[in-house]
Design a protein around this nucleic acid. Structure first.
Lengths: 176, 176
DNA sequence: TGTAATCTATTCCATGATAGAATAGCGGCC
DNA sequence: GGCCGCTATTCTATCATGGAATAGATTACA
């Protein structure tokens, strides 16, 4: 699957504090933040939790309450913390437009949540997009007209827009 | 599923001339044209053909040859032609970036193949993107800072890039 | 001439994503 | 009391997807 998955973003949310599924789901309903980036259905979220647990990145423990049905709280394992760090500071992030929108912004969100530096994240993403931009520009020169050429030009225009936009991400939210 | 499907593009290819699966597959290998827009696996293509046949949009007939294994050639039914026309001149196409790249360019490709006018297609797409652009701009004004806001700004920048790019699609390929 | 590789053409299968309903306990409201 | 709605999770059916399997025909070449 080449689609971005919310797995590491969930790790990030759990790194702040142990949570159960329903609580995590609520984090994605906030339409000003993560809700604009990810659309997660209930079953999808629980499927991801199961996958992460299967990979040994999180562990769940049942919590009994009198207030509500039994819940399972998940927290990061050491492997989970390691994976989260590796994902946050991935040295060559994807330059795909979709992944920039979804994965890069999730990295930024998680890093801010955890009070970690964001400069390296933005810089790595910017570099990756520049490389892609140069590659596509070169490709355009040896491309024949037709819809394939138009697709290439659109891609180049999208990358240029990302490069103009990404500098604004270097500022912390308070400086906006 | 909100992902664009190659269904109508296949209808367009079949509208030019009846073809069998393997031939259709070859159309997507051309890296200067459709191949840049769609990535179709073998099984995916045959699955789409089955779906289209199930909907009565195409009919297949077995063709025996001594040159090669038996093949099934598909051609459009009247319902298929109707569906193709409706798709080509869809009055309110999606303004999603992905759909512009994939669906709009496919419309353009098919219309050019069939020597049909493309002006209406481009105009409809442009109008849809403008509406989306205005909507998002208004939304930005009443949005709080954070990654949600950054996502919104990226989206706006992407739409602006599309609007700048789309005018080049009004020209026929010879005029490029 | 044998056989290996490649091309044509399609089907099959296992896995995984996804939507939506189902389940189920509890609290509040009228 | 009875119903609605909230918390919390699981289940199920469907569908997409990648990749291998099948299988006939042609070319390559020793």
């Amino acid at each position: 699957m080449s689609q971005p998955t919310p797995d590491e973003t969930l790790l990030g949310l759990l790194a702040v504090q142990a949570k159960h599924g329903y609580q995590l789901l609520a984090c994605f309903h906030d339409s000003d933040e993560l809700g604009r980036v990810w659309k997660l259905s209930t079953s999808q979220l629980y499927a991801v939790l199961k996958r992460l647990a299967g990979q040994g990145l999180i562990v769940g423990r049942a919590v009994e309450t009198t207030q509500a049905p039994a819940r399972t709280e998940y927290e990061l394992t050491p492997a989970g913390h390691k994976r989260l760090q590796a994902w946050l500071y991935e040295p060559s992030p994807s330059a795909s437009i979709r992944r920039v929108r979804v994965e890069f912004l999730s990295r930024l969100y998680v890093a801010r949540l955890l009070n970690l530096p964001t400069v390296a994240i933005v810089r790595a993403q910017k570099a990756a997009c520049w490389r892609e931009y140069e590659t596509r520009l070169a490709e355009r020169d040896r491309s024949a007209p037709g819809v394939g050429f138009l697709a290439l030009e659109l891609h180049i225009a999208q990358l240029a827009a990302v490069l103009q936009w990404i500098d604004r991400c270097e500022m912390s939210p308070e400086e906006d």
